[in-house]
Design a protein around this nucleic acid. Structure first.
Lengths: 195, 195
DNA sequence: GCGCTGACAGATTTCAATATCTGTCAGCAC
DNA sequence: GTGCTGACAGATATTGAAATCTGTCAGCGC
């Protein structure tokens, strides 16, 4: 009758994150995860066909925690330029906070993401689609002058890589970073604006 | 009388590049370099105080080969917007060509650059200063409307990272890359333009 | 004297033996 | 039947001894 002992994929993922936090990415094994769940490691393989797929699922959960709050901003009403700026700043803040508050876990997730590149690609497509939505809205409002919102969205994503791509995380602590964000956002919003 | 046997820092650097190409970064040793030069390894230490400083010097040479042709473009006369676009495209082309033509050597130089981060910082400052010059010129010509050319130059550099930072090199082969470069350049030039 | 050599100490890397892990599956318990 | 276990084979990681490398310097040859 004890519901807690039911082994679900969700529970495995939660415990796997704990194990990764405790042991680190390099040392965490499927056996460790099984031990933390108090089951045999064979049981874990009943829910995930391989260690790689388990890690991929952890990466996916992590990326979803980034994209959900952004989707909410994208769905709100209001002027597109303000919304785009808010959306981008939220994206940067989410990333910067994660790396500042728990750098080790950030490094762990980063490596997981490198391995699960198809998951990352889907995440990127999701984010770009959200930006595309905001830009199309801006065009409809007469605020933006853009030939192709899809291409413009990809350009916005490319042009802000310095502030959201983990390869540049070591610069995010830099005190000039906020000024640099402001400068790029100003430039990009001017570039999109109807005149 | 044979000038070829004179041991100069320059000659050591040339031979070191050969050795790196032949053996790879991980396996190339100071002893290998000395053997290629037909001297004892102690002689190499007469010109470079450590293996790290030798590697740093190799990285510096490589970066200078990137920045010199750009400085030439920056020094030419002409309308700033055209020049800025040419300068940026030359920067991207230089990087993209290097990674396409000799990916192994690119990886080698990339690792060297990571180690010699002070050299890379100076290189970055150099490039940003060149952009600043072009932007200031554009302001003087009435083509650009920019509050602070220094900040704008840093913003242009940040906003084009996707196309010149080696962390994104794996995307440079992508067939959509040229479209993406066009989209970002259009956006940025519109953002700088006086209206 | 000047520049190079080569032996050396300590640090680092390699390699092979050993231990641990991944993924499977026959069989047990319910 | 359903879901879990634990022994197993092959793959991967760890370890410590041996080999190699880095950086120094006394001394040799010109």
């Amino acid at each position: 009758m004890n519901e807690a002992v039911v082994l679900t994929s969700e529970r495995i993922l939660e415990v796997t994150e704990d194990v990764l936090r405790r042991y680190g990415l390099a040392k965490a094994t499927v056996v460790d995860v099984a031990r933390a769940l108090d089951v045999s490691h064979g049981s874990v393989y009943r829910h995930f066909p391989s260690k790689a797929s388990l890690r991929e699922a952890v990466a996916k959960r992590w990326l979803e925690r980034v994209s959900k709050p952004l989707a909410q901003i994208a769905a709100e009403p209001g002027p597109a330029p303000v919304k785009l700026e808010r959306w981008l700043r939220e994206l940067f803040d989410a990333k910067h906070k994660r790396v500042c508050e728990d750098p080790e876990m950030f490094a762990t997730y980063l490596t997981l993401a490198r391995e699960a590149c198809s998951v990352v690609k889907a995440h990127k497509q999701d984010l770009i689609a959200q930006v595309e939505g905001i830009i199309a809205e801006g065009v409809a409002q007469g605020a933006f002058d853009v030939a192709d919102p899809k291409i413009a969205a990809a350009a916005i994503f490319d042009a802000t890589r310095s502030f959201h791509h983990p390869a540049h995380a070591d610069e995010w602590a830099d005190c000039t970073c906020s000024t640099r964000v402001d400068a790029v956002l100003t430039l990009l919003l001017r570039g999109l604006a109807a005149r």
